[in-house]
Design a protein around this nucleic acid. Structure first.
Lengths: 215, 215
DNA sequence: CTCTATACGGAACAACGTTCCGTTTAACAA
DNA sequence: TTGTTAAACGGAACGTTGTTCCGTATAGAG
């Protein structure tokens, strides 16, 4: 074994299977729901069920792995967007990306509250990835004078998640509009180049009177 | 069979079993969670599983029946409390009763978002029972000059539910205090005996003396 | 190449939701 | 009361699930 003493040797096929499994499970959960049978995932991934259970001792471990992987993908998108677009647009685009994440992962989010100990660390992971990511986008937009300086990422993440919940309103497109409205709200009283009509999706002046937090 | 045209003949033992089952299922769900096996419920109720499935063709139907029954109990409590206490105190007590309901039924609430068609009508039932119940309590308190007139039951119900959710904060006693604070907020600018002291945390320390430690 | 720790596949097991059917019984008529 | 019958009963049996087990295959070191 020529590996570092601090790291276990992982056989290449095993590593490949782990990645394939998480990807396959993500797709199967998206089409068949989180309660899709393990056998279906194993079959679609081209492995036996034993292979799943060696890497993910419980079903919930696989779900948690998928969740973490999707959180990573969404958080990493913040970096890419920040490099590819000016601060304000990067913020816009990431918020809509985050809406997609929340809407797509509603099924998983419901499972999070099931009390399974495998999910206990996920909310903290969620925050640890999303808060800094959004903070950086906000800071950049503030520095560019595109938004006001008093927004905090925690509240924004929670507010958007609330707006996307079915108890708030079941329609995803409504959620997108409301979130766009929310982000436009950040532009009010920005310090930079004064531009009163900013957002691309700006044809509705209905403000949510009170921000409740359903669900 | 001599049956009334509008009403089906229901054998007495069947009726008894239905009631026993809903009561038993409520208790089992409370102690073992919503995913408790049907066999356990059947055994504890002293019936066979067949008896459950005749009255509740699907597992989710039994869950829905328990949910409805608990909604009824909580909504009916509003009437009893309104008769037994002055309007302001009745409102206080019912809100805490409602907190108990929300906290106890978190597990069921999570199941509601599972997409099962048996649960589709439950949110509407929830509103149809709780909104009028709370409206009556609010009206009485407004008439007595104990609270301000601009509270609406829908917002209040949603707000309290949010405060009780683990994402907001996991501690039930914190939820109770926050809800008490919320209700005290309603008293600000009431028309009746003026209370200009803004300190919202009066002696509203209804300590949860119950021995139950949920979660 | 050989060797072996590691990973593999899928049959087997346990526990679940649900169905089925022979047996019991409540309710009514005589 | 007794006889009759539709309704309700219990619980074995069925199909599907999560999970375990173990004989087999193979990646990687020497």
């Amino acid at each position: 074994m020529s590996e570092r003493s601090s790291e276990r040797t992982v056989r290449a096929d095993a590593q490949r299977n782990i990645e394939t499994l998480v990807r396959t499970a993500r797709d199967v959960f998206a089409t068949s729901g989180v309660e899709a049978p393990m056998r279906e995932i194993a079959e679609k991934a081209g492995v036996g069920v034993g292979t799943i259970y060696r890497n993910f001792p419980q079903r919930s471990d696989l779900i948690a792995a998928v969740f973490r992987s999707e959180v990573d993908a969404c958080a990493d998108a913040a970096t890419s967007l920040a490099e590819a677009f000016p601060p304000g647009e990067a913020l816009d685009r990431w918020m809509q990306r985050y809406v997609d994440f929340i809407v797509a992962k509603r099924g998983l989010a419901a499972a999070l509250h099931s009390g399974d100990p495998a999910f206990e660390a996920l909310p903290a992971y969620f925050d640890s990835r999303f808060e800094p990511a959004l903070q950086r986008l906000l800071d950049a937009a503030v520095t560019a004078g595109e938004i006001r300086p008093d927004a905090n990422p925690y509240d924004l993440l929670r507010a958007v998640a609330s707006l996307c919940m079915p108890s708030s309103n079941g329609d995803p497109s409504a959620a997108r509009r409301l979130v766009a409205l929310l982000v436009d709200g950040l532009r009010y009283r920005a310090s930079g180049p004064q531009d009163t009509s900013v957002s691309p999706l700006h044809e509705h002046d209905q403000m949510p009177s009170k921000s409740s937090h359903p669900d």
